[in-house]
Design a protein around this nucleic acid. Structure first.
Lengths: 240, 240
DNA sequence: TCCGAAATTTGACTTAAGTCAAACCACCTG
DNA sequence: CAGGTGGTTTGACTTAAGTCAAATTTCGGA
């Protein structure tokens, strides 16, 4: 299996020409990570931002007691760890910048490009397309985090899981008219149940229990990572 | 008390000239809100972003049961509700945009400018200073939300409060060398205890109890909104 | 195919913090 | 100054979900 190095897939770079893409590739580094391999820790000095070419990356925090919370997941086409690039612009006190969170590959053969800041900013200086694309990415993530915070502070775990499952169904059906309430919808989780629980702000035991509850109510049917939504209307009732 | 309408205080506008500032003021509206007055709800269609000229604004979510969570607070100089401005750039499915959260003035005479998107984007089209300032603001808020999520998912309430108090001390002493561990530091809360609890992801009863606990350990002394930090080292121990 | 390790489920128990209600305090207005 | 209202504190009780441990299942490699 030959790792991909096609960086044109990355949204941020989608408006750049072949020459610019080649330049970025020249001063950047593309690396393949195994499942479970750390990309960076939040204690490390900031060197550059990343883009996902293949695979899946979790952005997470760890507590002193070893508890974990996954803040967001990044898919192919997405960039992450861009925040520090712009922090010196607003912070009058210069201090060494660090990554905002930890980052780990959660799929085998996760291919990631690491883009050092300085040459990138020089190459894209005054490039409003890049700025707007970054603003769009930041806006999207801010909206997501807003919703995420709402969930973990104001929803119980059943509601959080139900919202997650409904979002997954929508991903499979971008056009809402193809979702039928009366028919079964199949979801194949693309992350482990451990990671799902971590992302939902809970632990595997609780996730297991809530899945079982929904199954006992004949709303869903769980087969490992495959979840059949048998009663969409009832699931929707849990998010009201 | 004559309300201020000096929009040059707003960081985003700080690089604009007098003519541009006047143009913005002409197509925008400046309004004074009373304490407790709603600026917008998250169900409303998006019309424009806001800047705080005077006062204090909370950005919050409400649950069906009436519970509230304050996601962030906005002070004079800050802008908020900019996110939807950039969402159409990344979202291929057009749908009506809404505000990402609710917004309320939490000080009397809160003066706010509401900037409609379209004329603003036309005026600042290709203005890389504006883009970079917005990127800086977004970056700052993303860093803040990362930390905020870490707190509410991985810290107990005592740790959250301790971190908050320490942050407040740092605000009073931007230069860290002026903070003395052996001397008393005084904090004057600029928000109600209800809002502080809501922001810390808890309720007033719990906040009260944790404040009392820290007081019983002689770490702090509480006089309404004035909190004397008597033992900074012990307070720091709670955040390790 | 089988075995071992890791992931997940299940059960029992505990706990941080939320709910509810009442008492108390602070502030503002007449 | 007094009274009323809203904010806050306190006490008793409850609960959602976390901790811990063991049982079961799944998955990957030999």
């Amino acid at each position: 299996m030959k790792p991909s190095n096609d960086i044109s897939k990355i949204f941020l770079f989608s408006g750049l020409n072949e020459n610019e893409l080649q330049l970025i590739q020249d001063f950047s580094s593309i690396k393949t990570y195994s499942k479970g391999e750390i990309i960076f820790f939040d204690t490390e000095p900031y060197l550059g931002f990343y883009g996902v070419i293949e695979g899946l990356v979790k952005i997470y925090k760890i507590s002193k007691e070893g508890r974990e919370h996954i803040i967001h997941l990044e898919y192919p086409g997405c960039t992450f760890a861009e925040v520090p690039m712009f922090e010196k612009y607003s912070d009058s006190r210069f201090q060494e910048l660090t990554y905002p969170a930890n980052s780990m590959a959660i799929e085998e053969n996760t291919v990631v490009i690491k883009v050092p800041v300085k040459p990138f900013l020089e190459l894209t200086n005054r490039n409003t397309d890049i700025y707007l694309k970054m603003l769009a990415s930041f806006a999207k993530r801010l909206r997501f985090l807003n919703t995420h915070i709402e969930g973990i502070t104001l929803d119980d775990v059943t509601k959080r899981l139900s919202k997650y499952l409904l979002t997954e169904i929508e991903k499979e059906h971008p056009n809402r008219q193809t979702i039928k309430e009366k028919q079964e919808n199949l979801i194949e989780l693309d992350i482990s149940k451990y990671d799902l629980a971590s992302h939902l702000g809970t632990i595997t035991e609780t996730l297991s229990r809530v899945l079982k509850k929904l199954q006992s109510e004949d709303i869903i049917e769980v087969h490992g990572k495959r979840i059949v939504i048998k009663n969409l209307a009832s699931l929707k009732n849990y998010i009201k």
